[in-house]
Design a protein around this nucleic acid. Structure first.
Lengths: 196, 196, 196, 196
DNA sequence: AATGAATGAGCATTCATTCAT
DNA sequence: TATGAATGAATGCTCATTCAT
C-alpha cells in the first residue's frame, strides 16, 4: 500500500496581519456599498458576504453594528480632514468634499441622522466624536463674508444641507445640495476627495 | 392549515364597532409616542401594546408598516393645513406649526427621512402625497421679503430645518430649529397647533 | 431595525460544518415523519424541533416549505430510480418500490396531490420534475401483457393507485394498494427499497 | 325646539328563518367556490365575505371548519343519490354525476382526501358517513360485465379515479377522468347533475 | 338574528451572535 | 486566524373564534 499523504482538508490560509488589515478595509468598503444600496438596517451578514469574508471576521474587527457604521463614517471624516489639511485648502474644497460625501450616498446622510436610525436614545458616542472632528476640520475654513463665520453656525448649516439632500439619484441629490447651500449664501459644489 | 386550539383564556370585553374609531385613534397616538421614543423601526407589536389593543387590530386598520407611519404624519400635515386655512393665518403661524411638529418628536423628522429609514428605494408614495399637501398649505404663506418667496425654495428650507433639528431634548431641538430658520433669514418659532 | 438582545442562555455545541450534512438528513427524515403523522400542512417548526435543530437551520437548507416537501419526495424518487437501474430490475420490483412508498406514509400520497394541499394554483414546479423522473424510471418496466404498456398509461395508473391508498393503518393501505393494482390487471405488492 | 324622532341607528333587519336558510345556502355555495379557487385551507372569513354575511353567521350554521366542508360534500352526495333514484337511472348517469363532481373542482377531490388535508388522524366522521351514502347510491348501478360488479370494488374504483383527476383546467381533469375509467374497463363521462 | 371588530395564539421568517472546526 | 453553520429570540402576519352592539 503506497503511502498517500493524508489529504489535509483545505483550510483557509492564515494570511497573517496583512490579511487582517485587508479584510477590515474590505468590510468597510462593503458596508459602504451595502448601506448605500439597502440602508443602514441591512443585515450584517450581507456586508460580510460582499466583503468576501466570514461572519466571524466582521465581529473580530467590529464589536457591534454601530462600530461598522462608525468605521464607514470615519473614512469620510478623515477625507474631510485631509481636504482641510491639504496644501491650498479653501472653504470651497473642504465644504466640497463634505458635500460630496453628503451626495454620494444615502448612507452618509443616514449616518448623520444615526441617532434616529440606529440608536434613538440620543446621539451615539461615536457620532459625537466624529462630529467634533468635522467641526475642527471646518474651523478656519468658513466661507468668508457670509453668515457662517462661526464654526457652530457652519456645523448647523452642514446639518441643514444634509437634511435637504434627498432623492433617488445622485444628480438630484447634488442639485438639492447646491440649492441648499445657496439658500445659506454659500456657493458650494461636491468635490470628489483624493483617495489616500 | 392553521388549526388554532381553543383558547381557554379570559377574553377582554369586545366593545363593538363603536370602539373601532377609538382604537384607530389610540393606535395613531401610540405610534406617535413609540416612534418618538424608539424610532420608526420600532416593532409594531409595541405600538399595539401601548394602544392597549391586540395585534390584529393594528393590521385591521393599517395594511402595513408604512400605513401606520403615514397615519401619524397625516395628522401632522392636517394640522399644518388647518393652520394655513385658519382665520388670520400668517407665515409665522403656519411655519410655526410646522416647526412645532419638527421639534415635537424625532418621529416627524424621521418620517421626512422615511426614504432612508423605511424604504431605501426612494421616497415612499405616501410621503410624496403628504409632502405635496404641505407645499400647498405653505403656498401663499411664504415669509415676506426673504429668499424663500418661491414655494419650492420654502420646501427645501423645511427639509433643511428638519435636518438641523436634532438633539435629545425638546429645548435643544427648539433652539436648533430657531437657529436654522435664522440662518435662512426667517424668524420662526414653534407654535403648538390647535387640536381639533 | 432588529436589535436582538444578548442571549444569556446556554448554547448547544456548534458542531461545525461537519454537522451540516447530518442536519440536512435529519431534517428530511423528520419531515417525512411529521408529514406522515400530521400532513403536509404541519408547522415547519415541528419539523425543526423533531430534527433537533433550530429554526434557522431549516431555512438554511430549504428556502421554503415546498423545498422541504421536494426533498422528501426526492428521496423516494431516487429509490424508485435505483430500483429501476438495479441488476435484474423487473416491473414487479420497480412498481413494488413505488407502491411501497405509496403505502409507507400519507406524506407521499399528499405530495402527489401537493397541488391541492400546498399550492392550489397548479402543480408546483418541483412536482413536475419529480414526476418526470418517475416516468423515466418506469419506462421499460411496464408490466407485460396488460393495459399499461404505454408509459403515460402507467403514470395514470400510479396516480389512480395513489388515490386508492387511504386508511389509517399500513395494513389497510397495503390491502387497498394491492386491490387497486389488481383492478388494473397488475399484480403488485409493496417492496421495501434498499436504503443506499 | 322641534321633536325630532331619534334617528335609530340602522340595524340589519331580522329576516327570520327564511333568511337563515338563505344564508346557509349562500355559505355552502360560497364555500364551494372559495374551495375551488383557493383550496380547502382558505380562511373561513373569505367564505363568509363571499357569502355576503358576517363571520358570526357562519358559526351559527357550522360549528367548525370541517362542518363547512361536510356541507359542501353533502350537496354533492345528495346529487349522486338523486341521480341514483331518478327515473331510468343507469350506471352511466350515476357514475357520470359522480365523475362530474370529481372534475368540477379540486375541492371535491380534496374533500375525498380530506383525511390528509384536514384531519390527518384518520378519516373524519362526516366523510365516513358520506362515503357510505355514496356506496349505497352506487349499489345496483355497477357497470355490467366489468370487473366492478362488487360495490366495494366500485368504491375503490371511485377513489382511484379521484386520484387520477388532477390538472389545472377542467378539460384536463375531464380527460384524465375518462382515461382513468377506461383503464378500469368503464366508459364514463361527466354528467352535469340536475340542480334541485 | 346579524354584524364585524377585537383578541391573541400560532406559525413563518429573519438575523445578530457564537463557536467547533 | 478564518469560516460559516447553528442557535433562538424577536418580529411580522394570519386567522379561528368570540361577543358587544
Amino acid at each position: 500500500m503506497t503511502e498517500h499523504p493524508v489529504p489535509e482538508k483545505w483550510r483557509p490560509a492564515n494570511h497573517g496581519p496583512k490579511a487582517a488589515a485587508r479584510n477590515r478595509a474590505a468590510l468597510v468598503s462593503a458596508a459602504r456599498e451595502i448601506y448605500a444600496r439597502h440602508g443602514l438596517a441591512a443585515p450584517l451578514s450581507a456586508i460580510a458576504r460582499r466583503a468576501g469574508v466570514g461572519q466571524g471576521v466582521l465581529y473580530r474587527h467590529f464589536p457591534d453594528r454601530a462600530a461598522v457604521a462608525a468605521a464607514v463614517l470615519e473614512e469620510n471624516v478623515r477625507q474631510v480632514e485631509q481636504a482641510a489639511e491639504a496644501e491650498g485648502a479653501t472653504s470651497a474644497t473642504v465644504l466640497g468634499v463634505l458635500t460630496w460625501h453628503l451626495t454620494e450616498s444615502a448612507a452618509f446622510i443616514g449616518l448623520l441622522h444615526a441617532d434616529v436610525a440606529i440608536s434613538p436614545q440620543g446621539v451615539p458616542p461615536y457620532a459625537q466624536a466624529l462630529s467634533e472632528r468635522v467641526e475642527r476640520a471646518l474651523r478656519g475654513h468658513a466661507p468668508h463674508g457670509g453668515r457662517l463665520e462661526a464654526a457652530s453656525d457652519l456645523m448647523l448649516a452642514v446639518a441643514m444641507v444634509s437634511g435637504a439632500v434627498t432623492g433617488p439619484t445622485r444628480e438630484e441629490r447634488e442639485r438639492r445640495a447646491r440649492a441648499a447651500w445657496r439658500l445659506l449664501g454659500v456657493e458650494a459644489e461636491p468635490v470628489r476627495p483624493f483617495e489616500e
